[in-house]
């Protein structure tokens, strides 16, 4: 890990100002992603700005829905009564992620910004367009068993966000509140926050230099109360998803009135599927409907040599999740 100076930010304005002036500096909250990346020599920052003193806290119901401060910890949000009862997919996505120790440390804002587990990205001995733009992508023809089949490009096929929470957030129409160094806030839906790799896989999201995630808001809805997060891994716990599905259904009289679907582990970003939702709405809540929706969700998949299994796995994962909420 390179040496750095450490600043405990006294205010959001100071924190964002520091990063505006020094784009190479980084914020630190829980540290679980940042220090891991710095120890692996994947990121180097001359200055770390500690934002743990920021007042971006609280888990509360507002007129716009559930508002979660970006400095809240995964464990506290995952076990929050309001989240458990009104937004089960959010709670499940948090408690199925990482380990209890990491969940006690990791902030919600930091979780949203975690980076890919692609082995080529994480080993500086290899070229990687995300790490060194223009250097190439060995994953295209290499070890790609855990990489994406949706949203890929010739430059990058990494599941850029390897986590769980943002999949549930994308499904449930969550909106991020971002704040810049002028104290000005803007709202960005999670589905528009992450960028597809295209020719610039190094650009992963729409954050401007110095901009902070201060909160995430999830609208209240019948399909949010009847939601779940289903995760399939190489071992029973403490592993990243091979495939996952966050779904919410509003079923009345056996007919699906509203549907929300997002997939994890298979896309280059948390993968909201309007195609699957379209195949669900107005249809009977049956396995046949769910199978059709799953097929629609994966129709555009571009599997490679080692990750072709994900096309079927993701479909089955989605069907399982839908069966659970249709119950």
């Amino acid at each position: 890990m390179n040496n750095f100076s450490y600043t405990q930010a006294g205010s959001a304005k100071e924190a964002t100002g520091l990063l505006k002036d020094k784009p190479q500096a980084a914020y630190i909250a829980g540290g679980t992603t940042l220090l891991d990346l710095m120890k692996a020599n994947l990121e180097e920052h001359p200055q770390l700005v500690d934002i743990n003193t920021m007042p971006f806290k609280g888990i509360e119901q507002t007129k716009d829905g559930l508002r979660i401060g970006a400095m809240e910890r995964m464990s506290d949000v995952g076990e929050n009564k309001l989240v458990l009862e009104q937004y089960p997919a959010i709670s499940e996505s948090l408690l199925l992620a990482a380990s209890p120790q990491l969940r006690n440390m990791a902030s919600i804002g930091g979780n949203i910004l975690q980076r890919t587990r692609c082995g080529y990205f994480r080993d500086p001995a290899f070229p990687c367009n995300k790490r060194v733009p223009g250097s190439g992508c060995p994953a295209l023809e290499g070890d790609n068993h855990n990489l994406a089949v949706l949203g890929t490009s010739d430059s990058c096929i990494a599941t850029a966000y390897p986590g769980d929470l943002s999949v549930a957030l994308a499904a449930l129409d969550a909106v991020l509140t971002l704040e810049n160094q002028k104290g000005k806030q803007r709202q960005v839906p999670v589905t528009e926050f992450y960028l597809l790799p295209g020719k610039t896989p190094q650009k992963e999201n729409v954050l401007e230099p110095g901009e902070l995630i201060v909160a995430v808001t999830i609208p209240a809805a019948a399909h949010a109360r009847r939601s779940t997060y289903f995760k399939v891994r190489e071992r029973a716990s403490y592993a990243y998803a091979l495939a996952s599905a966050a779904v919410g259904l509003d079923v009345q009289g056996g007919t699906i009135r509203a549907a929300r679907v997002a997939l994890g582990g298979v896309g280059t970003k948390p993968w909201r599927s309007p195609e699957a939702e379209k195949a669900l709405v107005g249809q009977p809540a049956t396995e046949a409907t769910f199978r059709a929706a799953a097929a629609a969700a994966l129709r555009g998949a571009q599997p490679r040599k080692e990750n072709a299994f994900k096309v079927e796995l993701a479909q089955n994962t989605l069907v399982q999740a839908l069966m659970k909420v249709a119950g």
């Binding site: 630190i28 891991d36 120890k39 464990s75 209890p100």
Partner: peptide, 27 residues
Amino acid sequence: CDHGQCGACTVHVDGRRINSCLTLAVM
């Protein structure tokens, strides 16, 4: 592992278990 993957470094901070390898002493 020194990367938060094994738990050998688990300690309690303010009563909560954490991985001491992924937090700075200064914090």
